[in-house]
Structures are given as C-alpha cells and as structure tokens.
C-alpha cells in the first residue's frame, strides 16, 4: 500500500505511534516533508473531518486522530521549518472579557489543531484589544471569540470593531451557547460556529481552505 495512504489511515485511526514511526520512515527514505504533511497527515485529518461531519465518528475519535497527527507532525516539524512549510495558518482563539467559561473554546482549539491549523489560545477573560494585538503579532487569518454568557457576548462586537479599525486581513468567527447566527450577523462577524466541528468548517471557509 502507498505509504502516504497508510500514514493517512494511521492518523484517521488515531494510531499515534504508527503515524510517527511511518512519518520517520518516509523522511528517512527521502520523502518531501511537505508532501508527507499534505498527502499523509492533512489527508488523514480531512478524512476524519468528513466522517465526523457525516456523524460516523465523534469528538473523541477526532481528538485521537489529532493526537496521531501531532505525533507525526513532531517528526516532520524540524524538516518543515527548514523547508519553510507550515500548517494551514494561524487562528487566534479566546473566551471574551468577563467570561471564564472555556470548555467550548478549548474544544474548538483542539479541533482546529487537529485540522492542521496553528492555534494561539489566549485563554479566558480576554480583553478585545488582546485578540487584535495577537492577530497582528501572529499573522492570524482568523480570530475566534467564545462566550457562554449573554452578559459577555456583547464584547464580541468590540473585537469585530477593533479588528476592522486595525485594517487587518483577519476574519472574526464567534460561538458559544447564547450566540446565534443572527447575533453574529448583527455584530458584523464574518462567521458563526454552533459547535466545535462546525467552527472548524467555518474557519476553513473563511480562510479559503475549502
């Protein structure tokens, strides 16, 4: 079987040990690390994403695949850095100011990493300015804001305003239990994710990756 296909299957199956070993073997035999990343790891995660969307597998399966991808990525990373290769781009993520609920945000971060994005997690109780500063500093393509409270979701509007005012080429996606698509639209956000899987889909769409 084609080694890239085998690697993608190891990732999809959440077999971290085999994924890392196979990635090392492929590099050892002269494979292009970017090709290994794209054709093995990302391909595996894309397959997982498709099955997740089709409800054939669930969050833990995606996380296991993500873990396998990270294990293989750790093998590739030195060569990728040397060759300038990077994952799919950076997403700045955080729970907005006044809100200490971060479970949903953490899930989104895990899923985004699993989908191949670099995630800069600002944590919880994050001021609006901090989102924009981090986006500028990290060269982020997407800012993700999370809130669990109706009293804090309004902070998201300020994040959008500051991002627009800064003139950054960054999209803002919002989510969290009280947040709706209508609210996202009303505050001028570029996207809305109703759960972690959906958030990844929206990020991919906003970042032009799908």
């Amino acid at each position: 079987m084609d080694k890239l296909k085998r690697l993608s299957e190891c990732v999809a199956a959440g077999d971290a040990e085999s994924a890392a070993a196979l990635a090392a073997e492929m590099l050892g035999s002269g494979a292009d690390p970017q090709e290994v990343l794209d054709g093995g790891l990302i391909a595996g995660m894309n397959a997982v994403g498709g099955r997740f969307k089709a409800r054939e597998i669930f969050l833990p399966d995606v996380l296991m695949a993500s873990k396998a991808m990270q294990a293989a990525l750790a093998v590739l990373q030195p060569r990728l850095a040397a060759g300038g290769g990077t994952p799919r781009g950076t997403v700045v993520l955080g729970t907005v100011r006044g809100d200490l609920h971060d479970i949903g945000k953490n899930l989104v971060g895990i899923m985004l990493r699993g989908a191949g994005y670099r995630v800069v997690d600002l944590g919880k109780d994050v001021p609006p300015e901090r989102f924009v500063e981090a986006a500028r500093a990290e060269g982020a393509r997407v800012i993700g804001c999370s809130a669990l409270l109706t009293t804090t979701m309004g902070v998201m509007r300020r994040v959008v305003e500051l991002a627009r005012a800064a003139g950054l080429p960054v999209k803002v996606i919002v989510g969290g239990a009280p947040v709706t698509a209508d609210f996202a639209s009303a505050i001028g956000a570029d996207g809305y994710g109703y759960d972690a899987g959906h958030a990844v889909e929206r990020v991919e769409a906003l970042a032009g990756d799908r």
Binding site: R55, L59, P60, L63, K67, N106
Partner: peptide, 23 residues
Amino acid sequence: EEHLLISPHTRKYLKSEIAFPGP
C-alpha cells in the same frame, strides 16, 4: 489534561456507559 475525552478510561467505557440514541 483538562479533559477526559480521549482518556483510555473514556475510550474503554464510553459506549458501554452511555447509550447514544439516534438518528
């Protein structure tokens, strides 16, 4: 780990402990 979503314990018992109806 901050969650137990992929803990070996979770993976071992998830489907026997929690019945997932659907669709």
